[in-house]
């Protein structure tokens, strides 16, 4: 049991509203972990804190033994954390392949100078970048769309493309923000298969998801947030039977 990511006593408030209160979370290496909870439970806040979009108020985020609190967003990617976005955020001014190639940014080094004069280093690295990018594109099944503009693809494929882009950063932890939103049943099944294959590659997966069927079929560990607090965690089966979780989802009807 080694956890790749841990949060200890994580707190974050916006204005007067507490979005996350004292959350302890452990993402075990090589496992698919899901964070669920009703709207406003703090799921996205948790994601953004781990990714470094905004700073934490109190508490600690530890990734493979290193405290992340003061690490800039782009450096977290270099350390091995990758993410997708709820609202997709593909680069509309590039082809599908180029989108994935940007993922290789942190795994390549050559800069302005080598590029400006097309030094051998730049050509060598560029070749590796495009080969690897093509491999990730094939992995998510978009190989034949490499040269199409990213935003010309249908939503389902756009979401796969963001996963390929995140994978191209060669992460140890992949965070998926609502990967199933807007997908049909067939696409969701393909998505589940893909996430399992990613797990089998040795990449830990942390996902936030609304679709219970998807989560229960996919996640090996489920963490439930409600009003900024962790109220339960366990296997999918345990969570489905947990009274507090049922109460949180059904809300006031309990009273």
């Amino acid at each position: 049991m080694t956890s790749i990511l841990e949060t200890k006593g994580l707190c974050r408030a916006f204005g007067g509203i507490v979005a996350l209160n004292n959350v302890d979370l452990a993402v075990e290496a090589g496992r698919i972990t899901a964070v669920i909870g009703p709207n406003g439970a703090g799921k996205t806040t948790l994601f953004n804190l781990v990714a470094g979009v905004y700073p934490v108020d109190r508490g600690e985020i530890v990734f493979r033994g290193t405290a992340l609190n003061n690490v800039a967003t782009h450096k977290r990617t270099a350390m091995g954390i990758a993410r997708t976005f709820q609202n997709v955020l593909l680069f509309g001014n590039m082809t599908a392949l180029e989108n994935v190639m940007t993922g290789q940014h942190v795994r390549s080094r050559y800069g302005f100078f080598e590029a400006a004069f097309r030094l051998p280093k730049s050509r060598r690295e560029e070749e590796t970048i495009s080969l690897k990018a093509m491999r990730y594109l094939n992995l998510v099944g978009l190989g034949m769309h490499a040269q199409r503009n990213a935003l010309d693809l249908p939503l389902g494929q756009q979401k796969l493309l963001t996963i390929a882009r995140a994978l191209a950063t060669e992460p140890q932890l992949l965070m998926l923000d609502e990967p199933g939103a807007g997908l049909n049943t067939l696409e969701k099944r393909d998505l589940s298969d893909l996430v399992r294959r990613i797990r089998d590659m040795g990449i830990s997966v942390l996902l936030v998801e609304h679709d219970m069927d998807l989560v229960m079929g996919l996640a090996e560990w489920v963490v439930v947030l409600d009003s900024g607090q962790k109220i339960a965690e366990g296997t999918a089966g345990e969570i489905q039977r947990n009274q507090r979780v049922i109460a949180a989802y059904l809300g006031e009807e309990e009273e």
């Binding site: 990714a51 590039m94 882009r165 950063t169």
Partner: peptide, 15 residues
């Protein structure tokens, strides 16, 4: 070009 497309996404791939 990634920064032009989306700064948040560009940061997320380590730019």
């Amino acid at each position: 070009r990634a920064i032009h497309g989306s700064e948040a996404a560009a940061e997320s791939v380590g730019i």
